[in-house]
Computed example of a mutant assay.
Amino acid sequence: ILRGRGGRYFGAGAACTVFVSTAGTHHEKGWTDLVEAVAQLPAHLRCRVRVILAGEAPMACMTRKVESLGLSHQVVFAGLLDDVRSTLAAGHAAFVLSRRETLSFACREAMAMGLPVLVSDAGGLPENVTDGLDGWVVPCANIAALRARLEQILSQPEQLAEMGEAARSKSRARFSLDTFVAGTLAVYKAALDAEASEPPQAVLTESPSQ
């Protein structure tokens, strides 16, 4: 069992696996799906999970749901953050379980911090991770599938560090600023080259009147 990384939020030395999200606390971000799935885990696994959520204070109905599931002591709301790095550093894995999404900077930030990311298959999220290598992909809003994947993750905690390094490596290779700039310039260059290679258009003029 992994130890210590959640000490800032849950007490030093606590034996647990910490899942962290900086994607926000709105309903469409799907974090309540994770909480529901955790609540359905077998007791010996459920007690080992901790969850950290960064973002605006969630709606009261959401916090009541956490309470009703008996997980209040296992879920921490970190609030709005100017810098997400220290909060991400407290986790063993990240999650972005959105119901709709484009790309998710939160996912890529977590990968850059060396965390494997659990994502839903909504929108562009699956494009960030390779399932089983640097993260996991689950069907959107499918609590049963999410619970099964959590059981798998928690049964092999020793794999998290290795998967986190794979996530960091992918982040450097594919999502870095240098890679983004180089890719953008390549698109512009290809467009300019294509325009330069086109034959000049013939200019038609009318004959002068006889």
Rank of each mutant, 00 (worst) to 15 (best):
residue 102 T to I: 09
residue 77 F to L: 12
residue 116 P to C: 08
residue 141 A to N: 13
residue 206 E to Y: 10
residue 129 V to L: 06
residue 88 L to S: 04
residue 64 R to Q: 14
residue 29 K to T: 01
residue 1 I to S: 11
residue 166 A to W: 06
residue 43 A to W: 03
residue 193 D to C: 10
residue 36 E to D: 15
residue 132 G to H: 09
residue 183 G to L: 05
residue 26 H to N: 12
residue 51 V to R: 07
residue 191 A to M: 11
residue 48 R to N: 10
residue 81 L to R: 14
residue 22 T to P: 02
residue 133 L to Y: 11
residue 98 S to Y: 03
residue 203 V to Q: 12
residue 3 R to W: 03
residue 139 P to M: 06
residue 48 R to C: 10
residue 105 F to A: 10
residue 9 Y to M: 07
residue 66 V to Q: 03
residue 107 C to R: 03
residue 182 A to E: 13
residue 124 G to I: 04
residue 135 G to I: 07
residue 144 A to T: 14
residue 140 C to T: 15
residue 149 R to T: 07
residue 137 V to S: 05
residue 31 W to P: 03
residue 181 V to P: 00
residue 79 G to W: 10
residue 18 V to K: 03
residue 6 G to M: 07
residue 111 M to H: 06
residue 91 G to L: 04
residue 7 G to A: 13
residue 94 A to G: 14
residue 18 V to N: 09
residue 117 V to M: 05
residue 34 L to S: 01
residue 33 D to F: 11
residue 104 S to A: 15
residue 170 K to T: 10
residue 83 D to L: 02
residue 152 Q to L: 12
residue 153 I to R: 01
residue 184 T to V: 07
residue 48 R to L: 15
residue 114 G to W: 09
residue 117 V to P: 00
residue 125 L to F: 06
residue 210 Q to R: 11
residue 172 R to A: 13
residue 132 G to W: 10
residue 51 V to P: 02
residue 73 H to Y: 01
residue 73 H to Q: 13
residue 56 E to S: 13
residue 55 G to M: 12
residue 16 C to E: 15
residue 144 A to N: 10
residue 81 L to N: 09
residue 54 A to G: 13
residue 163 M to G: 00
residue 136 W to N: 05
residue 179 T to R: 15
residue 163 M to C: 12
residue 35 V to D: 02
residue 154 L to S: 03
residue 156 Q to W: 04
residue 122 A to V: 08
residue 205 T to Q: 12
residue 85 R to C: 06
residue 94 A to P: 01
residue 49 V to E: 02
residue 104 S to N: 05
residue 187 V to H: 09
residue 47 C to Q: 15
residue 95 F to A: 00
residue 4 G to C: 05
residue 51 V to Q: 04
residue 195 E to P: 00
residue 170 K to M: 08
residue 3 R to H: 11
residue 33 D to Y: 12
residue 77 F to N: 02
residue 161 A to Y: 01
residue 12 A to Y: 02
residue 78 A to F: 07
residue 105 F to C: 05
residue 109 E to V: 03
residue 100 R to S: 13
residue 88 L to G: 04
residue 85 R to E: 11
residue 112 A to H: 12
residue 85 R to Y: 09
residue 63 T to M: 11
residue 156 Q to E: 13
residue 168 R to G: 04
residue 148 A to D: 15
residue 57 A to K: 12
residue 149 R to N: 00
residue 127 E to Y: 05
residue 89 A to M: 01
residue 21 S to P: 05
residue 133 L to R: 14
residue 97 L to M: 08
residue 190 A to K: 12
residue 39 A to M: 07
residue 2 L to D: 07
residue 3 R to P: 07
residue 180 F to L: 13
residue 113 M to N: 15
residue 1 I to C: 03
residue 67 E to Q: 13
residue 143 I to E: 13
residue 186 A to V: 02
residue 22 T to E: 06
residue 171 S to Y: 07
residue 118 L to Y: 08
residue 111 M to C: 04
residue 154 L to G: 01
residue 51 V to I: 15
residue 198 E to K: 14
residue 128 N to D: 08
residue 201 Q to R: 14
residue 63 T to N: 00
residue 122 A to W: 09
residue 166 A to P: 02
residue 162 E to S: 13
residue 101 E to Q: 08
residue 180 F to N: 04
